[in-house]
Amino acid sequence: MIEFVKGTVRYISPEFVVVENGGIGYQIVTPNPFVYQKYMNQQVTVYTYQYVREDLIALYGFETREEKALFIKLLNVTGIGPKGGLAILASGDPGQVVEAIENEDEKFLVKFPGVGKKTARQIILDLKGKLVDIIPAAVSTDLFNYEEVEEKKQSEDALSEAIEALKVLGYSEREINKVIPSLKGVSLSTDQYVKMALQKLLK
């Protein structure tokens, strides 16, 4: 089992990042790859989970051990696969997810792609009271106090990348189109656009 990969961020796509270590580029699927945009060509540590299935071998990565632990627990819930687990963690606030599970807040959980009422109930039944070992990492939820991106072109490119990332997570074009107007009035990085969109989608 690969506990973590420490190396240099070489490539970022809407679905994964490539981290180079010892001349080898590791393709790591993450909830929001653009979180690593600010570390491009810099060294990072990504906490990883190797997922093996008959038709798939993939390396999933997270910023913290707490996110990784929550992902693994979600995989043990009937009806939740890797894609569903990533979509839930992409909100950037594991504490919010844990709180929803502990408070049996089905309305919050069904807002995630691929999570219906039956799956939300299953998440609560399987995980409530079993997440005490997960202490969520401190994640900023202030989505409106970011530095402005200097170039308008950079902002437009970042928004386009964020839309692609939301599609990868499973949100439909109809859902995405509802929040796009509220995103166009601000200049943010791709990561910030994704976080802002997710906050609005989860309201």
Rank of each mutant, 00 (worst) to 15 (best):
I2D: 14
I2H: 07
E3D: 13
E3K: 14
F4E: 14
V5G: 08
G7Q: 04
T8V: 15
R10H: 07
R10V: 14
I12K: 04
E15K: 11
F16L: 09
F16E: 12
F16G: 12
V19M: 07
N21Y: 09
N21K: 12
I24A: 01
I24F: 08
Y26T: 09
Y26S: 02
Y26L: 03
F34N: 14
V35D: 15
M40K: 06
M40Q: 03
Q42R: 13
Q43T: 15
V44D: 04
V44P: 00
V46Q: 08
Y47G: 10
Y47M: 06
Y49W: 14
Y51L: 12
Y51C: 01
V52Y: 12
R53G: 03
R53E: 10
L56Y: 06
I57R: 06
L59Q: 07
F62H: 01
F62W: 03
E66G: 10
E66Y: 02
E66P: 10
I72V: 15
I72E: 15
K73I: 12
G81W: 05
P82R: 08
P82L: 06
A87G: 10
A87Q: 13
L89I: 06
D93F: 00
D93K: 11
V98A: 04
E102T: 04
N103M: 11
E104Y: 01
D105A: 00
E106R: 09
F112E: 04
K117Y: 02
R121E: 06
R121L: 13
L127T: 02
L127G: 07
G129I: 05
L131R: 11
V132F: 15
D133F: 09
I134C: 00
I134Q: 00
I135V: 15
I135C: 05
A138M: 07
T141R: 14
D142P: 05
E151K: 13
E151H: 12
K152F: 05
Q154L: 15
Q154C: 08
E156Y: 07
L159V: 14
I163M: 07
I163T: 09
K167I: 07
V168K: 14
V168T: 03
L169P: 01
L169R: 12
R174S: 14
R174Q: 01
N177I: 09
P181H: 13
V186I: 04
S187N: 13
L188V: 06
S189P: 11
